[in-house]
């Protein structure tokens, strides 16, 4: 299973593209934040696919986005 590329994504429907990205992102997110990986991955999938592809190749980018997502999620949950 090689790296996911923009070319591979371009042959899929928009929903399938997010699904393919999510399948790759989820294990990485889970290694950073095991308890909220499902929600954080769901949040990250709101981003542009090009950004998501970049995050798959850049652990630092992914980690900073996950940190940011955790902050947003906590703020959101605090409101409820």
């Amino acid at each position: 299973q090689g790296p996911l590329t923009a070319t591979m994504l371009s042959s899929a429907s928009p929903e399938e593209q997010k699904e393919m990205l999510g399948e790759r992102l989820f294990p990485l997110v889970r290694s950073i934040q095991p308890t909220k990986a499902s929600k954080i991955t769901g949040m990250l999938l709101e981003l542009d696919n090009s950004e998501l592809l970049h995050m798959l190749e850049s652990p630092e980018s992914l980690r900073s986005m996950v940190d940011e997502a955790i902050g947003v999620l906590q703020a959101h949950q605090a409101e409820e």
């Binding site: 992102l25 499902s38 999938l45």
Partner: peptide, 26 residues
């Protein structure tokens, strides 16, 4: 604000179809 925010964010579960962000509008 709206009650729909309770469902946010949708959870991604590996192996399941990604439903994405449907317009929550009951």
């Amino acid at each position: 604000n709206g009650s729909s925010s309770v469902n946010w964010p949708p959870e991604f579960r590996p192996g399941e179809p990604w439903k994405g962000y449907p317009n929550i509008d009951p």
